[in-house]
Write a protein that binds this DNA or RNA. Structure first.
Lengths: 407, 407
DNA sequence: CCGTTTTGTTCAGCGTCGGCACAAAGTCAG
DNA sequence: CTGACTTTGTGCCGACGCTGAACAAAACGG
């Protein structure tokens, strides 16, 4: 009998994936740096770069723009091919959806926003956002290698179902990944070989964390903790050694039910004073004595209030209160996860911008010992980070093994 | 100029490390299974096994004990070489210390307990435990490839200092790893090449989790959460994909200050009702209305009480109270980390044994949705798991690259 | 102009692993 | 008992990714 094996590591240049990841995240601007980062010889790095260029993923400019002041032969410049393949990224949030084409390097090639004019039904909305993305693909004629979808809900693995899509009034357990894949096939989105592209779905904060780690405020962090609040409730995410930690069934970093105010508001989870109900936009508006209106999103109302009336002592006091509660929650997370960076999004990001020192002081005061007490807390720095993160998740197979997904 | 490179991946048979790890954890009892687990051809697996045997690490029995009922040629049996090299494992706890020699497979070859007769000084105790280990090495004449030390304190990385060795009355920041390495050199513990062996130090609960994951109740878990309480305070640990997650500075899983009883006892951290003060042996004894005595350890007193007087309603009520608090803490951790298994040690293990259903019910009730709500909670199953874990940490370089550490 | 420094490329060689053929050692059917 | 079948172990050869060294190229400085 002929010997069969279950291939663990595909054949092909094994340094290809790491090399592409380095160029993708901007950590390998030249072949010389690529050589050092990969830990291989110049010969290998050169061959790898040539292969990536042949695949149409990167581009080598023999004449660099910056002559620089160092001596020796100037290095050629490595860059993402501007006309290379893209992935389809989609995001659904409380106020609408957005589709985009995203190239390597996190570059948004085209984008199409959409409002919630269709029925609030998972299948219809996902169909609409995929159709918008397919339209962009038709307009631009770019090759598409994958697709990613960000939703404001925990997504269970390996099922791909949304467990708590509360803001969307969707039923718990909606099979978002299956609907996404189905919509992709229906819209005729296909890869270079004509077969339908693979689709992945994930929690929006998780994906935002991935994007911030690759291209934003989290760049270079070993263990990155992200916390964000957009509408109702609070989301968390953790990137460990460059990979998203979603736990063994996709439910990790459900941080909303950390107790941050023992005598606080009752939460649907049965406890009181959970992070979810104490630090989200509604909590802020309530603490500031404002009645939330129905026109714009709670995040928008909170942001407007914070930016325009921060001088008002009531608003200031409300912000301080939320910051104190958030700080307690972050300190608890820092003690458990010991990240080397924290990035905040949504309203938490705004609160950090308004008074960076207060939040940092609370966290430092309540977290334990040494370096972890002074863990840097930064504001998210990317526009549409969930969308870019959905693209990152879609790019992941290519970054892991370019040959298997292209050649 | 000749090309230099910073080697990322050492040369040598790259399947050697994974193969040794499989035999080490008992997941490769035969060459046939090894072939399947590694995902290589039989030829490669055979060559790898032959090389490991030549290195004196494993042993191939051509005649297997179990003829089994399956047809085809019976597979030869792979086992850890019984007279192979060992590592020196050491543990220091509140009541004394213990040194041991541990072979691959977690097999304890020799052990030597010691009491706290020496001054309560880090250097003296570490010298004593290393000297005990060196004595075992001299007695048995085994080759020693590394050394590991478990201490009841968070150990900061990369410094190797003990940050909160409270039960030992040591100064915070004691340089335990440096002292350990120094003591090893002083005692003449050396590797096969005559140079002093490398020494690693870690938190005892972290190392216990590693041991349980490799050889105990955590075997096969993808993400394993361990929680244990031995004397005062509560320790946590997380094993992710087979590697200990210690965070970016070694301080991860400091779970003692999760709030589990908002109106509870004040804690030195400034909050109230922390896991540390609500679920440790002292909390149990106090809840049961017993005055802790000075003779034996708090854990021993708690265990005796729980085992002999569980029928007493007061004791039963105290146990239930602690279990409820512990369940709240575990649920919080499960929501954040989403492990697929939880293993409990120390008093928590005893409480689980006393009433497994109560704890599981509390955790399921307070953790969120689906599979994570029914995460299995098991009792630690290894004797001296911190000690075995110290050995695991010492073995790690060999498991990662046998050739680099041996030949 | 030539030496120095750094970068890029070509080429031979080596080591690991896949693929195949064959041998070995058991079960099962008759 | 014998022969077909199944599964395991091993020897051989080639593919291929990578190293190492030599050489060429492109800048700077004296």
């Amino acid at each position: 009998m002929t010997q069969t094996r279950t291939p663990r590591l595909e054949r092909g240049r094994s340094a290809l994936g790491p090399a592409l990841a380095l160029v993708h995240t901007g950590r390998a601007p030249t072949r010389a740096v690529l050589t050092a980062e990969l830990g291989v010889t110049r010969a290998t790095a050169g061959a790898v770069a040539a292969e990536l260029e042949a695949l149409g993923l990167i581009q080598v400019d023999a004449r660099p723009a910056a002559p620089a002041g160092s001596q020796g032969r100037p290095s050629h410049r490595l860059a993402i091919a501007p006309d290379g393949p893209v992935v389809l990224a989609a995001q659904i949030h409380a106020d609408g959806f957005r589709a985009a084409l995203v190239g390597l390097g996190g570059r948004m090639v085209a984008t199409a926003p959409g409002c919630m004019t269709v029925p609030a039904d998972p299948a219809h909305i996902i169909d609409a956002v995929v159709e918008a993305g397919a339209g962009l693909l038709r307009e631009t004629g770019r090759r598409c290698l994958g697709a990613g979808l960000a939703v404001p809900s925990a997504v269970a693995e390996p099922d791909g179902t949304a467990l708590n899509p509360l803001h969307l009034s969707w039923p718990a357990g909606a099979p978002v990944r299956a609907l996404f894949v189905e919509a992709l096939a229906k819209s005729g989105v296909h890869g270079p070989d004509g077969s339908p592209v693979s689709g992945v779905a994930g929690n929006d904060v998780n994906l935002a964390a991935l994007a911030e780690h690759r291209h934003g405020a989290g760049r270079g962090a070993q263990h990155l903790l992200c916390v964000a609040t957009g509408h109702r409730g609070v989301g968390g995410a953790l990137v460990l050694d460059g990979r998203l930690h979603t736990g063994s069934s996709g439910l990790a970093l459900e941080v909303g039910h950390l107790t941050v105010n023992p005598a606080g508001l009752p939460c649907h989870c049965g406890s009181r004073g959970c992070l979810d109900v104490e630090t989200d936009p509604l909590a802020f508006l309530t603490a500031a004595g404002r009645e939330p209106g129905p026109e714009v999103s709670l995040l928008q109302q909170s942001r407007d209030l914070l930016r325009s009336e921060y001088a008002d002592p009531t608003v200031r006091a409300a912000a301080d209160l939320i910051v104190d509660r958030l700080g307690l929650g972050l300190a608890g997370l820092v003690n458990i996860l010991n990240p080397d960076r924290v990035v905040l999004g949504g309203l938490h990001r705004e609160l950090l911008d308004a008074d960076p020192e207060r939040l940092r002081a609370v966290v430092a005061d309540r977290s334990l010992w040494g370096r972890s007490g002074s863990v840097p807390i930064l504001a998210a720095s990317l526009d549409h980070n969930s969308l870019v993160g959905a693209a990152e998740a879609a790019w992941q197979p290519v970054l892991d093994d370019p040959l298997a997904t292209l050649g």
